[in-house]
């Protein structure tokens, strides 16, 4: 149970802080905020080249409307995904997006293949590298789509493009659920029951359903762990 490769002494902690946590935060803060500023680049282009500007009332109206839809997720998603993504994983995932269909599965698979123990620093490093690999492929993919996308879609049969459009995410979600349910099958019914009840039966908003599913299952895990029903692997 005690893992010799897990460093817990003070010197190792200091090294980890100095060579990982601090640089990770520095890189994360700077890149996220630069990206926030650059988000408005196309609008600046419209203003300079075409003299298009938006009046402040329309801008505020649009902002209010979109925050009403997505505002809760700005907070709920980082908080809910943090225990899985870790520090660098969070910065990477919330800059590059596609968290559920790309970052989480790629982080999990990297850990699975290398064989790290969940919740350890090794797992965080290896999982982060899995995310890095996924971001590189992602950027290549969207850039290729920008260049040859329209042509390629026109020559592919519709059944293939429809299959990718409609079924990739469901198939991946099912597969990752299966992968983790294998590790601790007793959590699976709860993880399905909580969202099925809160979303399907009660129709609660998604920004309540996500944290309820994550932290509800974690709470069940805590009870099982305390009672010794679930043993760490």
């Amino acid at each position: 149970m005690s893992d010799s490769s897990e460093n817990t002494n003070a010197g190792a902690n200091e090294q980890y802080d100095l060579l990982w946590k601090r640089p990770v935060i520095r890189i994360g803060v700077v890149t996220m905020l630069i990206a926030a500023v650059l988000s408005f680049g196309p609008l600046l282009y419209l203003y300079i080249v075409h003299g298009v500007s938006i009046d402040i009332r329309t801008a505020l109206t649009a902002w209010g409307l979109i925050v009403a839809i997505f505002g809760a997720f700005y907070i709920v998603e980082p908080v809910s995904f943090y225990p899985i993504l870790g520090l660098a994983g969070t910065y990477l995932s919330f800059l590059s997006g596609n968290i559920s269909n790309l970052r989480l599965p790629c982080s999990a698979m990297a850990q699975e293949v290398v064989g790290t123990k969940e919740g350890t620093r090794q797992a965080e490093i290896v999982g982060t590298m899995g995310i890095v690999g996924s971001v590189v492929v992602n950027l290549i993919g969207v850039t290729a789509a920008a260049v040859i996308g329209a042509w390629l879609i026109s020559v592919l049969p519709a059944v293939i493009t429809d299959a990718f459009r409609n079924y990739t995410a469901p198939a991946i979600f099912g597969a990752v659920f299966g992968q983790f349910a294998m590790r601790e099958i007793r959590f699976a019914p709860f993880a399905l029951a909580i969202p099925l009840i809160t979303l399907g039966l009660l129709g609660l908003p998604v920004w309540i359903v996500i944290p309820a599913s994550v932290f509800g299952t974690v709470a069940i895990g805590r009870v099982f762990y305390k009672k010794g029903i679930v043993k760490p692997k």
């Binding site: 809910s80 995904f81 225990p83 899985i84 559920s100 989480l104 999990a108 123990k117 969940e118 919740g119 350890t120 797992a123 469901p170 979600f173 099912g174 990752v176 659920f177 983790f180 349910a181 590790r183 601790e184 959590f187 699976a188 709860f190 993880a191 399905l192 909580i194 969202p195 099925l196 979303l199 399907g200 359903v209 996500i210 599913s213 994550v214 932290f215 509800g216 299952t217 974690v218 069940i220 895990g221 805590r222 099982f224 762990y225 679930v230 760490p232 692997k233």
Partner: peptide
């Protein structure tokens, strides 16, 4: 416990996504 927590959180997220 951190290991159990990570597993539980992951199953929880994907339980929701499958719903």
């Amino acid at each position: 416990w951190l290991g159990v927590l990570s597993t539980a959180a992951m199953i929880g997220v994907f339980g929701y996504l499958n719903t």
